[in-house]
């Protein structure tokens, strides 16, 4: 009985602690690191063995609901919607499906935003601060349903991301797999 009570308390505390970061608002950003971009690889094909370090796959901004909704605001403001619409795509590829040409890890998306990609994606390096790149990356992942429900903006003004009725297999993130995925 006593043990069960203790366990229950422990789980309650763990639950509270786990949801803490959701409400974190980083208002004064840490100074940017200069060489983050150089550590992000686009594909797993390396010249030589391990010449490029592994990319940072975690994005601290995607744990905060505030940062993700800031990303949502920036997505509109920096006219990402001009090509990607509100995730549905248009001139640019859709962002709410499971196909990723350049990888779906936070680091991949960040690199895509900062470096630009062939066929039209412009480079935002030196145009936007790095933390905004990460906020955008977090929001883009939320479009595809890759973020936990509690941090994704739950009242989007535009299309809502929901799995379709007929979908059977679970959506899985696709990371760096060696070969860039083909856009179907």
């Amino acid at each position: 009985m006593r043990l069960r009570l203790q366990l229950g308390l422990l789980f309650a505390i763990a639950g509270v602690l786990a949801s803490c970061q959701r409400e974190d608002r980083i208002l004064r950003q840490p100074p940017p690191a200069n060489d983050i971009l150089n550590t992000i690889q686009i594909s797993g094909l390396n010249p030589g063995a391990n010449s490029i370090p592994t990319p940072p796959s975690s994005n601290m901004y995607q744990e905060s609901a505030y940062a993700v909704s800031e990303g949502q605001k920036l997505f509109e403001q920096y006219n990402c919607v001009g090509c990607h619409a509100h995730g549905g795509g248009g001139i640019g590829p859709p962002l709410m499906d499971r196909d990723w040409i350049y990888g779906s890890e936070p680091g991949n998306i960040f690199a895509t935003i900062m470096q630009g990609r062939p066929n039209g994606m412009p480079s935002f390096r030196n145009r936007i601060p790095e933390y905004q790149g990460w906020e955008l990356a977090a929001y883009v992942r939320s479009l595809a349903g890759l973020l936990p429900k509690e941090v994704s903006p739950n009242r989007p003004d535009q299309m809502n991301v929901k799995p379709s009725e007929s979908s059977t297999s679970e959506q899985k993130p696709t990371g760096i797999t060696g070969v860039p995925e083909q856009h179907k």
């Binding site: 608002r25 208002l27 004064r28 950003q29 100074p31 940017p32 936007i128 601060p129 933390y131 905004q132």
Partner: peptide, 16 residues
């Protein structure tokens, strides 16, 4: 340089 110190939360981003 540091708008977030003057008005924390403002849309103006810091420019180091």
């Amino acid at each position: 340089v540091d708008p977030q110190r003057i008005k924390p939360g403002t849309e103006m981003s810091p420019n180091p």
